[in-house]
Design a protein around this nucleic acid. Structure first.
Lengths: 200, 200
DNA sequence: CCCTTTTCACCTAGGTGGTAAGAT
DNA sequence: ATCTTACCACCTAGGTGAAAAGGG
């Protein structure tokens, strides 16, 4: 009923324990979440959103080339962890017509950003998170829907788990980002090595 | 109940007879349409869209520094002239919370672009057009709504009329575009004149 | 001849990881 | 010592009118 679209890419990162940068003004995820939905009622209305929940109650630390648990987390901090897909609400037909992507979802560690509800997801650095997809049927006249609603279906893919960081810890993750994120093209060394010989 | 937001700018262009470029791949309007809505039911759902209709049945030609009518138009050509606001459908509260802008609406003369319904508005060059705003209440279970619906309110501002062109005719219009559109900043001559003296 | 299309330099707008300074 | 922030050069992505080329 729900398929993770860029599964092979997620799997590559997951093998090295995915890290996602969080900044004050917000940072996009890479890879970003993208799903194929099916089995919805084409004429019913749905809201689609993503939230991000703690996988465990521990701090994590990168030490000796490995991620290790380290003390207890402070429990759930305040701050928005829900991102409503910008197309919401919309018909089942709309959601099934093409992939449902969250390329503009941003992660932040700025607790004051909770005001911009639905704009940014607020996380704590060095904690491990699991993104989840929610598909909620919207009934007429309910206005701003309460969440969670009794008509919500929730999906989670373990391959999309990540540790929130303010700077990359594992060089393998950094290299995967540089290799696959078009915005990091400036850090690929294809051209440097092409012309290196003439500079010696 | 509906206010045109950037009225002073529209008025400046209207005084010289606004022109809008149309291209095959689509060109944004400048100025773009932006409205303030009020008086909606906050919890009801609405779709908001813009269409563009012929003002008269004539070709227009720019001759001797003036726009003059010139023969009859071929009547209504096929092609989409309806642009659904990307936030549609949404609650009355959403539409009234902030300005409703159509900054990404694109105009084209490419009749084949009708496939991308709701993406581009197809117009004929050298014809005069009037953009209109439509606010339609959406009832549950109707799926893809028919248009026009009996619950639609329509608004039109004469200041937003324009003649579609493939190249600007009136130099006054060109200068207004250069002066006010941030993307045309490269054609402002502020800096040229600053340094002209040292180049003579 | 008049209108349209293509290409271009020049912008806006904003997403990257690196780096060095700052904070605790 | 460890984590965070601010700034940077370098990208992607795409919106401008000018000018030249194309078409009927």
């Amino acid at each position: 009923q729900v398929m993770l679209n860029n599964y092979p890419l997620w799997a590559k990162f997951h093998k090295h324990q995915t890290e996602m940068i969080i900044t004050k003004q917000g940072r996009r995820m890479f890879p970003f979440l993208s799903f194929n939905l099916s089995g919805l009622n084409p004429v019913a209305h749905y809201s689609v959103c993503v939230d991000v929940v703690l996988v465990d109650q521990h701090h994590w630390r990168y030490q000796g080339g490995k991620w290790v648990q380290c003390g207890k987390a402070e429990g759930n901090m305040p701050g928005n962890r829900l991102y409503l897909h910008p197309d919401s609400p919309n018909t089942g037909a709309h959601w099934m017509r093409q992939e449902v992507s969250f390329g503009k979802l941003k992660l932040t560690n700025n607790k004051g950003a909770s005001n911009n509800v639905g704009q940014m997801i607020v996380l704590q650095s060095l904690h491990k998170y699991q993104p989840r997809l929610h598909v909620t049927e919207v009934k007429e006249g309910e206005g701003e829907e309460t969440y969670p609603s009794p008509h919500t279906h929730t999906f989670a893919f373990p391959e999309t788990q990540f540790i929130a960081v303010t700077a990359y810890q594992n060089a393998d993750i950094t290299q995967l980002k540089i290799d696959h994120n078009p915005f990091a093209k400036g850090f690929r060394d294809n051209f440097d090595s092409m012309y290196a010989a003439s500079e010696g």
